[in-house]
Design a binder for these strands. Structure first.
Lengths: 150, 150
DNA sequence: TTTTTATAGTTTACCCCCTAAACTAATGAT
DNA sequence: ATCATTAGTTTAGGGGGTAAACTATAAAAA
């Protein structure tokens, strides 16, 4: 047990902490490299959630409001999101995807999904996928994902 | 199968691509927040490998040499690494950890290891650890980790 | 030997990220 | 009406990365 836990710890660190960039870089479709991972995540959240406030985005992305403010400015300038004022609260701004933004998200989802799917299919057989799902569910629970993000 | 693969894909994305920051942020020991994850990784590579060239670090960390050059400058300024000229090739520089650097790596390893260990122990029973290790080994293989990094 | 090509690492330019504090305008509580 | 809280913005500063240009050195070709 101690030996296995030790190995699990090392693998966890290697895969979870240092593996992310490698995976992202190996996606060879240029479309997903037009934006940063954080920008893509933001657009996907908006797409999934529908119009949303900047403050909610900050919670969901786990960062300060200033980071959101900055990111939104960039995406707005590029025409992928639009800001709509709130009727009920003058301070609040609603963020929506533009058509261009929606198109992008659709494409990005397909590319990412396809990439990961083939990554898994190429290395994992049907039986293992089952285990993968279990492990990932557990990981998700461990990492408390979903608490700030839908 | 299709349904499970779909779920695996979504979980993969959530955990691997967007989960990293959450994990790192939840470590509450301030020591590991003195440096960025990339800086820590660099020091750990040097610690593990011994004196190493900047070019090798670039390969191992999967980035351009300029990123390494920049990062080394910062760590050298802080006194955690030192640069030694090569006898056999005037262009090459060998990078070593200072005593302070080695101390830090030792501490960081303990903190990270302890954190992840308790993270896993708190949520995973003995039987599951076995599965975790298998899954992580597979992930490591999938992500081609270790090819550019020891 | 001299010239050309390749290489190690650095610098420069520019883009992105984040935290944190300070700030502005609007809303809610007293 | 006044004070406290809140949504979002701006400013300051630290980190990351790519990519091209650059400098000095080494290796290969002429």
């Amino acid at each position: 047990m101690e030996k296995q836990l030790k190995e699990a710890v090392e693998l966890f660190e290697e895969v979870i902490i240092y593996g992310t960039e490698r995976v992202l870089k190996s996606i060879d479709n240029p479309i997903v490299h037009e934006f940063s991972p954080e920008q893509i995540q933001m657009m996907k959240i908006i797409d999934k959630h529908g119009p949303i406030t900047a403050g909610s985005l900050a919670v969901m992305q786990g960062v300060h409001k200033s980071a959101i403010s900055n990111r939104l400015k960039k995406l707005e300038e590029k025409g992928f999101v639009q800001i709509v004022k709130s009727d009920s609260d003058q301070r609040t701004k609603w963020v929506e995807l533009t058509d261009e933004g929606s198109d992008f998200v659709e494409k990005a989802r397909a590319i990412l999904s396809s990439f990961i799917s083939s990554l898994l299919s190429d290395h994992v057989d049907e039986k293992e996928v089952e285990q993968f799902v279990k492990t990932f569910r557990k990981l998700k629970e461990i990492m408390k994902l979903g608490e700030g993000e839908r």
